[in-house]
């Protein structure tokens, strides 16, 4: 029983980290129908930014988010304004994959040039420490990451579905012409949305960098998992990203504990297939999301 609980706790805590990394991806797709293949390298970029602030300026990892989140926001706005805005509506989805893939390759090359291929890991007092609760050691970094994920994703949800900006944002997506007719600056909304999506990734990158040794090539393994989470959760659903991340990591942890780590990934993908057969739009598909 304790092994089962430990696996569930591991899954929930690590799942929240993946939710932080996947939230930007699902937000950008859900609102703009842009598949951001660069999400993995943006996570890694977030980790590098936190590293620079931590090592060279002595700024705490969480405090550093006050700087890295705005920086990533500006980067996101720049990508949208400079590249994505120019894509035609007809082939927007397929072309967005190509453009963001190019962004990923460029960012990876730049990071490799600046930092080299050596592995780094973020350090702070809470990275290797844990708190003892009911017989379980809960790592501080995951507990803090979980709180950060709930806070940030909750804020995102609030912005999207409970504010005037969120309504403008979704209206722009539903019908750009109509949105323009009622005075919404569609290009501005798109740029801000992309910026928010990339900004959230700064937080995911920081926790990723504190829990995993990384280099500029670490995004390769990440992007497939993040896409899987977003598809399972329902592309565009913030809550779905959280739910799918936790579900995925809990399944993997339980299978890994009771069966074998070799089968953990396979079982997860089997669950993914089953869910998509029953609910092709994912656990919280677009229809459900946009009806909120």
């Amino acid at each position: 029983m304790s092994n089962f609980l430990r696996a569930v706790i591991d899954g929930v805590l690590t799942g929240s980290v993946y939710a932080l990394m996947a939230a930007g991806l699902t937000l950008i797709f859900g609102v703009m129908e842009v598949i951001n293949i660069a999400q993995g390298i943006l996570v890694v970029l977030g980790a590098y930014l936190s590293y620079v602030l931590s090592v060279h300026l002595g700024i705490d990892l969480f405090a550093g988010l006050i700087i890295t989140i705005p920086v990533m926001f500006v980067l996101g706005v720049g990508i949208q304004w400079g590249l994505m805005r120019r894509l035609g509506e007809r082939e927007k989805v397929s072309m967005s994959i190509l453009v963001t893939y190019a962004v990923a390759i460029i960012l990876e090359g730049v990071l490799d040039l600046i930092f080299g291929p050596g592995y780094l890991q973020l350090t702070a007092w809470y990275v290797n420490q844990s708190i003892h609760v009911f017989g379980f050691y809960l790592p501080y970094i995951y507990v803090f990451g979980f709180i950060l994920a709930v806070g940030l994703l909750g804020s995102l949800y609030f912005i999207l579905y409970r504010t005037e900006f969120g309504r403008s944002l979704r209206a722009s997506q539903q019908n750009k012409t109509a949105a323009r007719l009622i005075g919404i600056d569609v290009n501005r909304v798109a740029a801000i949305t992309f910026g928010i999506g990339v900004a959230v990734t700064a937080a995911g990158g920081m926790v990723f960098g504190a829990t995993t040794a990384f280099n500029s090539n670490s995004s390769a393994d990440l992007i497939s998992r993040l896409l899987t989470i977003v598809i399972l959760g329902g592309m565009g659903s913030i809550g779905g990203a959280m739910g799918a991340s936790v579900l995925m990591l809990v399944i993997e942890a339980i299978v890994s504990t009771y069966w074998s780590p070799t089968w953990a990934t396979l079982v997860f993908y089997m669950v993914l297939v089953l869910v998509l057969v029953v609910r092709p739009a994912g656990l919280f598909g677009q229809k459900a999301v946009r009806a909120q």
Binding site: T14, S256, T257, P261, T265
Partner: peptide, 13 residues
């Protein structure tokens, strides 16, 4: 136990 080379989250193991 043997784990796959694609594993990125080693926490449960």
């Amino acid at each position: 136990n043997v784990f796959g080379s694609e594993v990125t989250d080693f926490t449960p193991i």
